[in-house]
Nucleic acid binder design. Structure first.
Length: 585
DNA sequence: AACTTAACTTAGCACGGATCAA
DNA sequence: TTGATCCGTGCTAAGTTAAGTT
């Protein structure tokens, strides 16, 4: 099936409408309507549980125990994870054991009372062997497996939305297993239950071919709601939240939404000065709530903090964003490392990623913070008169569509644009330009605190690269000597011998190629070192207006493939198609 | 409730060295 | 000796699903 991008046409109409007054409005549906026709095959269910073979056993207190099917399945979830740190954590083990016991028969429950007496060794070994066997499959077997998977994608991976075939993002029902919460999650280790067709709501057009549930089962519900974009949903048993099956990022619906997001952020660019002036004035307000709002906004704008919704205690890991900061998360320094009025932040943000930063702030903010912290305990809210809904309500009154996260998008994108301007030179090589691009990207990732665990093999791979660089240096000096030699010989015998001349040319080319390769590797080493703990992908995919990158590529004559891989080019197809070199965010 | 953002896990693939046939 | 191909390693891309925002 050929790719298609109808929404690009749509955008072009919107844009050209400024100049030509094209009647593009007809393209749009009435408010809230996302589609007129939606047809799909429903979600793909994970395979049924396969009981243990007869030669694999579970032992309790040294004795062989044949578990019931349900208990065995859950035991295997744990056994499979034995290599993982999770299974050493107290909370994880306790949650697992509690939920496992719920799956046991009365008899099993009476016997199995202590997780420490459980021996999952054979089950774990079986799992490891399976992983190994899979790795060692023959080419033919791998090919067969690949084809089988492709068949599933072909059948379940696409839907028909308003006459167009669209890729679905996640068409598979999440398989059962043990919940892997991030950070100190109070529910880690709990049993994430198997989803049955009876749990699944299907959303599609009335007049479409309704997806058929697996034989012998029924859907929970089939509905026809064209004001939402999801194709199927179910409620997950850990938090009781709803999971959705939605379209791929390269779809019209997602692409349009993405484009809108950046348009809102660009609108903020045009009024951010006024908004900044306003919150600077608000720092002096008589109303405490307004002052707290102003300080929070100052942080969100300056530091690109997330909004920070309140969270239910005991349901999730203890993490915070701006509005939910507590007194214990900041330390005030009148004087620190040569700066005045420094705020030291130390808290766990989304995914329990630590945010640590020392930031000089203006006096008024500093004074307000002191005031907010007066007579409070470490565990008290810093902004006790503020919530994300209050903050967002205020923001939307300043500009339609403005919310806290728009500042993150805006500051990320504007930073990229500035950094690219500052760091890149037309005369640089492509490798150097790419290093500059990555550095600009990195500045954004640091601003947004996008971290990653350093790769396990980091040190080794840096060392390997260094070895290669040294080898190339050697090669280069050799090539240079050879060039000198060739030149000498060419001169000595006079320029009449064309063979000598071509040899000189060839040696020159070799030196140049060698130099280029060396530079490329040295640049790569620098880039990798600087990127050790920084994740560039998140900002690239979610915060940086792709049109900035596309325009930069055009200006710098860098092929777009150098900065966006296939998936990213698909997702940003709209930007790649519409953006001219003179685009400005 | 619906949707975006996020890091982690796994799959797949490119690359370079080893091995083998011609 | 040379070119082809095999094979393991290490990295990137894709997939997964948790955790945010509105």
């Amino acid at each position: 099936e050929k790719e298609r991008r109808p929404f690009i046409f749509h955008y072009i109409l919107i844009f050209s409408s400024c100049c030509f007054f094209v009647r593009w409005e007809e393209e749009k549906y009435e408010d809230g309507v996302k589609w007129k026709f939606l047809e799909h095959k429903g979600p793909y269910f994970p395979p049924e549980y396969q009981p243990l073979p007869d030669n694999v056993h579970f032992y309790y207190d040294g004795k062989k125990v044949k578990l019931s099917l349900a208990a065995e399945e859950v035991a295997l979830f744990f056994a499979q994870m034995l290599d993982h740190e999770y299974t050493t954590k107290k909370v994880f083990r306790e949650n697992f054991f509690k939920d496992w016991r719920k799956e046991m028969t009365q008899e099993e429950r009476l016997l199995i009372k202590d997780l420490d007496k459980c021996d999952f060794g054979e089950m774990h070994a079986m799992h490891t062997a399976k992983v190994e066997a899979r790795r060692n499959m023959s080419k033919e077997e791998k090919q067969a497996l690949k084809e089988a998977n492709q068949k599933i994608v072909d059948e379940y991976g696409y839907c028909l939305l308003d006459h167009h075939k669209e890729r679905i993002g996640n068409f598979k029902i999440e398989p059962p297993g043990l919940f892997r919460g991030r950070g100190e999650h109070p529910k880690q280790g709990m049993l994430k239950k198997r989803i049955q067709p009876e749990d699944v709501i299907i959303n599609c057009s009335k007049e479409s071919k309704i997806p058929v549930p697996p034989a012998g089962y029924h859907w929970k519900e089939v509905r026809h709601d064209n004001t939402v974009t999801w194709l199927a949903s179910w409620t997950e048993n850990i938090q009781g939240s709803i999971k959705y099956i939605m379209l791929n990022a390269n779809s019209k619906l997602k692409g349009e939404k993405d484009w809108e997001k950046y348009e809102v952020a660009r609108k903020l660019k045009s009024c951010v000065d006024g908004i900044r002036n306003q919150y600077l004035l608000d720092l002096k307000s008589k109303e405490m709530g307004v002052r707290q709002r102003a300080v929070a906004l100052y942080f969100i704008d300056k530091l690109a903090l997330r909004a920070g919704n309140e969270k239910e205690e005991g349901e999730t890991a203890d993490t915070v964003g701006c509005c939910s900061l507590r007194v214990e998360h900041i330390t005030l320094h009148e004087q620190l490392e040569g700066s005045e009025c420094v705020v030291e932040f130390d808290f766990l943000g989304k995914d329990s990623i630590r945010y640590y930063n020392k930031v000089p702030v203006i006096k008024k903010v500093f004074k307000n913070l002191k005031l907010f912290m007066e007579n409070k305990q470490p565990g008290d809210d810093l902004f006790d008169r503020l919530s994300t809904s209050l903050l967002n309500k205020h923001l939307s009154s300043l500009m339609p569509g403005l919310t806290a996260k728009v500042f993150r998008t805006y500051n990320a994108s504007i930073t990229l644009q500035q950094q690219l301007k500052e760091l890149t030179n037309q005369s640089d090589s492509v490798a150097e330009k790419l290093l500059s691009y990555n550095r600009a990207n990195r500045a954004v990732a640091i601003l947004c605190n996008h971290q990653r665990a350093p790769p396990k093999t980091f040190e080794q791979s840096m060392a390997n690269l260094q070895v290669k660089i040294d080898a190339r240096k050697e090669q280069l000096s050799l090539a240079k000597t050879e060039l000198k030699q060739a030149k000498k010989e060419a001169k000595a015998k006079g320029s009449s011998d064309p063979k000598r001349q071509t040899l000189v040319e060839r040696k020159k080319a070799a030196v140049k190629r060698c130099e280029e390769q060396l530079l490329k590797m040295e640049v790569q080493a620098t880039d990798r070192e600087e990127n050790k703990q920084i994740a560039l992908g998140t900002s690239k995919l979610n915060y940086l207006d792709p049109r900035i990158s596309v325009a930069w590529c055009k200006n710098m004559e860098v092929p777009i493939e150098k900065i966006y891989n296939k998936t990213q080019r698909d997702k940003f197809a709209w930007a790649i198609d519409m953006t001219e070199a003179d685009f400005e965010f």
